[in-house]
Every structure is written in structure tokens, then in C-alpha cells.
Simulated scan of single mutants.
Amino acid sequence: MRYLLIMFAISLPFLANAQRNPELDDMKLKKKAVKQVVLDFFEGFHEGDTTKMKMVMHKDMIMQTIYKTKEGEDVLNQDDTSKFLNAIAGRPVGQRWNEQLLLFKIEVEDYMAHVWTPYEFYLNDQFSHCGVNSFQLFKDNGAWKIIYLVDTRRRAGCKD
């Protein structure tokens, strides 16, 4: 009996590995890589390091913002990526932009990925607004690149 218990204990790790799903493991790795791209983007954003941001941005990246005017009109605004990067690089010294990502929902299919990240934005530690980022990524010669970013912005209904 003792021999059987020892043999079972020794074989347990092998049995656990036999239960692994390589496709599931591969998807977890893909999602982790995609998430890292978004984290790198925001690391550069917070540091004011546009070079770091450009490393994960496709050269033809599209940026848009959706918001509601004071008059209640829904607006879709096309942003100029170069102006966005210039604003980050030209941010006054001492001014802190902190976009806190609250959740990651990630979907991956071959060479395309989608990341949904609700967020809260703070300017110099003061709450400014909240919303959702929607990233589309393309696997460009083995490296994930952000090709499209649209976000929403609102001040009401942010903090429950």
C-alpha cells in the first residue's frame, strides 16, 4: 500500500501535465502579449515618453474620441496622432497624467486583437473624467501594434 501511495505521489505531476490544454496555454500567452502592448503604451503616456509609445503604435494608427457635449449632442472626434504625441511630449514639467485602467477584456484571433479597458483619468491626482478605451491591434511581422484607439469620456456616472 505504501508503495502505491509513493508511486501515485511521484506520478501526480505527470498526470497534471497530461491534463493541460496547449491551445488554452497558447491563448493565455497571446492575451498576455497583447495586454503588455497596452501597458507599454500607458507607461510611455504616464512618463511622457513618446518614443516608448511609438514602439507599440502602428505608423498608420487611427485615434478617435466619443463624448457628449453640454447641449447633449453625441460627438465622434477624429484625433491627429502626431498632435496627441506632441501634447504628451510638451506636457508641462510637474503635471501628472494618470489613467488608471480598471479592467482588461481581451480577445485574440490570429493577427488581430481587441482590448476593452474602462478607465479613470486623474490630472495631478484630481479626478478629471472616466470612460472606456477600445484598442484594435494587428500582429505586424510578429509584433503586436495598436492600429486603432477609440475612447469615451464623461464626468457623470463615473464613481459609484
Rank of each mutant, 00 (worst) to 15 (best):
F14E: 02
K70E: 04
T65K: 14
K30R: 13
E107M: 05
E23T: 15
G72F: 00
H58C: 01
P22E: 09
L4D: 11
L29R: 13
M61H: 09
H46D: 06
K83E: 05
S82T: 05
W97P: 00
I6A: 15
L24F: 15
L15H: 03
K52Y: 11
M112Q: 12
Y3M: 13
I66R: 08
N21D: 12
K70M: 05
I66H: 08
T50L: 12
N98M: 01
Q100V: 10
T50E: 13
D26N: 15
E47S: 10
K31I: 05
D26L: 14
K105R: 12
S11W: 02
K31G: 07
Q19R: 09
A113R: 00
Y67H: 02
L24C: 15
G44S: 10
N77P: 14
P22S: 10
V93C: 02
E99S: 04
T50P: 13
D40Q: 15
E107G: 09
E23M: 14
E43L: 15
V34T: 04
K35C: 09
H114T: 11
K70C: 07
I62E: 11
E47D: 10
A9R: 08
A18L: 05
M7N: 11
F84T: 03
N86Y: 03
M112R: 11
V93G: 00
K52N: 14
F104P: 07
E47F: 03
H114E: 12
L15D: 03
V38C: 12
K28V: 09
